[in-house]
């Protein structure tokens, strides 16, 4: 079942905030885990905003053609509020995705539920479960602005998750997190994906995409450059370099060995594949 469909969508920014979208065509199915790659300013954020309805409703610019259909809703005819019951977005800066509406973490998470009229009896349960899932339950009475950056990001994730969207967009969610926090966020995201949520994630952490993603879409200059499996895209070192992305060390290792004709199979994208490949090389 298709939940996201871009039909030759063209978007022009009045002022260059990000790259214009030059005609994007793609479909994403329910439950897919999609990684977005591309150099900065390549249109990834504009793409994410188009799913959320921020483009065209909040961003200053103009639709030059095509449309975006999210779970049956045309984004040009639906408000961000309507879309927010289907799509949630987590942004890079932890601080600016907090609304400040609640004096405690618990209240910040509650804000979306209060706005959409979720009854009180249900609210408590949902907040408790989501805070436990992201590991913030003990901190629920603290001010969201007085915890660490990583914890702040989790408040943001919890605040979006609590609305139970089918699609979750994460725009560089681990940019401010330490390795432990990054691992925690990715495994949480994978868990949510296993529970049926469609995931769209912008990240430079290729190793996680190799492990978790079903599909990678490579953007540049506001266009989809390549759309394929992690194996196909991450092992294409030339393609990555051409688009200003550093390939994974394990892939580069395989490539170096391939040049010496010691590596016969496909280039590795995970440590496990590299280890298996190396075994063959050593033999």
């Amino acid at each position: 079942m298709t939940v996201i469909e871009f039909k030759d969508f063209k978007w022009h920014y009045f002022e260059r905030e990000e790259h214009d979208l030059q005609g994007v065509n793609l479909k994403i199915k329910k439950g897919e885990f999609v990684g977005l790659l591309g150099p900065s300013g390549s249109g990834k954020t504009a793409f994410c905003y188009s799913i959320m309805g921020v483009v065209p409703h909040l961003s200053q610019g103009r639709v030059k053609g095509g449309k975006v259909i999210i779970d049956g809703l045309d984004t040009q005819d639906s408000s961000i509020g309507e879309l927010s019951s289907r799509v949630g977005i987590i942004m890079q800066s932890p601080k600016s995705q907090l609304t400040g509406a609640g004096l405690t973490i618990e209240e910040e998470v509650a804000f979306g539920l209060e706005n959409t009229g979720v009854p009180r009896s249900e609210m408590g349960k949902r907040i408790k479960s989501v805070l436990k899932r992201v590991g913030l339950y003990e901190l629920r009475k603290r001010s969201p602005f007085e915890v660490s950056g990583g914890q702040m990001q989790k408040v943001g994730i919890a605040s979006v998750l609590v609305l139970e969207p089918k699609i979750l967009i994460l725009d560089e969610p681990t940019g401010y997190l330490d390795p432990g926090g990054t691992e925690a966020v990715f495994s949480l995201v994978k868990k949510l994906n296993n529970q049926g949520k469609t995931i769209i994630i912008v990240t430079h952490k290729l190793e996680y995409l190799a492990r978790y993603a079903d599909r990678i879409i490579l953007f540049n200059n506001g266009r989809v450059v390549r759309d394929g499996s992690p194996q196909e895209i991450l092992s294409d070192t030339k393609l990555l370099k051409r688009n200003k992305i550093d390939p994974l060390p394990v892939t580069l290792l395989g490539e170096a060995l391939k040049k010496k004709r010691k590596w016969k199979q496909e280039l590795p994208i995970t440590v496990k594949e590299a280890v298996e490949g190396l075994r063959k090389v050593v033999k």
Partner: peptide
């Protein structure tokens, strides 16, 4: 601008009858 987005995606403009945690 970023905070506006954050508010919008939390249903700030929703016309539903508002409820309160407390």
């Amino acid at each position: 601008y970023e905070r506006t987005i954050a508010l919008e995606v939390r249903g700030f403009s929703s016309t539903a009858d508002k409820t309160s945690l407390y």
